[in-house]
């Protein structure tokens, strides 16, 4: 099961579009923690949308480009937390004024599918439309569903979008569990640095210069706030060792030193001398980061020789793991 990449889009901290991403990545590790400018295309209606939906729409429009939208184009949206700003706004209404006073606008914007609904309305997408959520593999899970829709003939093209936002309440949650990077009580070896942003990939079938060759998901029974153990991660990671190409670059998922050691333990020799793609340190730890890393990797592949591949590892709390391979087609 593979798919052709027809378009890419991104809204990242310091990079409102694909063209500005390389400069933002080269500035790492001094990256801005949050997305600043979200392009609105001069559309006043877009400016009124919640920030999460604006990020998703901006990334989606980049990936769509001049592509014609038809009813055979599906939409898959991935998000870990959905409209957190709206969720907080709604609950704040209940807390401050009482159960009768929740905001109706915040309520519907708190629904995970709200951004997908807005994308459908704004872009005229009337085909199958899905929202998936899978902790820190929400982007990869959306990608895999998109590839499945193509492989099964349920869609001719699929717009895969992932977006998440970081809000103070989310950081407070990480701090409550003692894992927020930089917090006084956090163990630096195990701490996590949240991020935010949006990415989009337009997938199709047929030949093309860039392909998502595979997207494998695995999961290990695991406590909900733990990662799979190093020995559980190894079998899927070993598949990365078998990816052929010249060159093959790797994008690692580990959000902290402990997990990075586990990745390096398997890939160590293969990593030596290879280009390292943008990893977790560039985009932070959040559910849509996997798709953002894929966009970054795909953009770099455009500068690589035919046959070059980028292997992206994904990791989620709760035991989930992903391995995605993107390749520049052979000449």
């Amino acid at each position: 099961m593979s798919a052709t990449v027809l378009g890419l889009g991104i809204v990242a901290p310091g990079a409102p579009d694909c063209a500005s991403l390389p400069a933002a990545l080269s500035a790492s590790p001094v990256r801005p923690p949050r997305v600043g400018v979200v392009p609105d295309g001069g559309d006043a209606k877009v400016r009124r949308l919640p920030r999460l939906e604006r990020m998703a729409l901006a990334a989606a429009r980049q990936a769509l480009g001049a592509e014609t939208v038809t009813e055979s184009m599906a939409l898959v949206f991935g998000t870990g937390y959905g409209g957190l700003t709206a969720t907080v706004d709604f609950l704040e209404g209940l807390a401050s004024r009482g159960p009768e006073f929740g905001s109706p606008t915040a309520f519907h914007q708190s629904v995970h599918h709200s951004p997908a609904g807005q994308l459908s309305i704004s872009l005229g997408l009337r085909g199958p439309s899905f929202t998936v959520t899978a902790r820190e593999l929400s982007g990869e899970t959306a990608l895999q569903l998109g590839m499945e829709l193509l492989a099964s003939g349920r869609a001719e093209k699929v717009l895969v979008v992932a977006a998440d936002e970081c809000v103070p309440a989310l950081e407070a949650g990480y701090r409550a569990f003692g894992v927020l990077a930089g917090a006084e009580e956090a163990d630096p070896h195990r701490s996590l640095e949240p991020g935010e942003g949006a990415a989009a990939v337009l997938l199709g079938t047929g030949p093309g210069p860039l392909r998502v060759e595979s997207c494998a998901l695995t999961a290990h029974p695991c406590a909900v706030l733990r990662f799979a153990r190093a020995e559980q991660l190894a079998p899927l990671l070993r598949q990365a060792l078998e990816v052929q190409g010249a060159p093959v670059s790797f994008s690692l998922a580990a959000p902290n030193a402990e997990l990075h050691e586990a990745e390096v333990a398997v890939l160590g020799e293969r990593l030596a001398g290879q280009a390292k793609e943008a990893g977790a340190q560039h985009f932070g730890f959040h559910p849509s980061a996997g798709l953002m890393r894929l966009v970054a990797g795909a953009l770099r592949l455009g500068e690589q020789p035919p046959g070059a591949a980028c292997v992206l590892h994904g990791l989620a709390l709760g035991g989930g793991q992903a391995l995605t391979v993107v390749r520049r087609a052979a000449a």
Partner: peptide
Amino acid sequence: LLRHHPAGTVADVLSAELGLTAERHTFSTA
């Protein structure tokens, strides 16, 4: 109270309690 907030944790709990190594998908289309 926050531990199971993300919608995807329901699948994580099922996987852990039922011993499933299956791919996990969570659809949240309202």
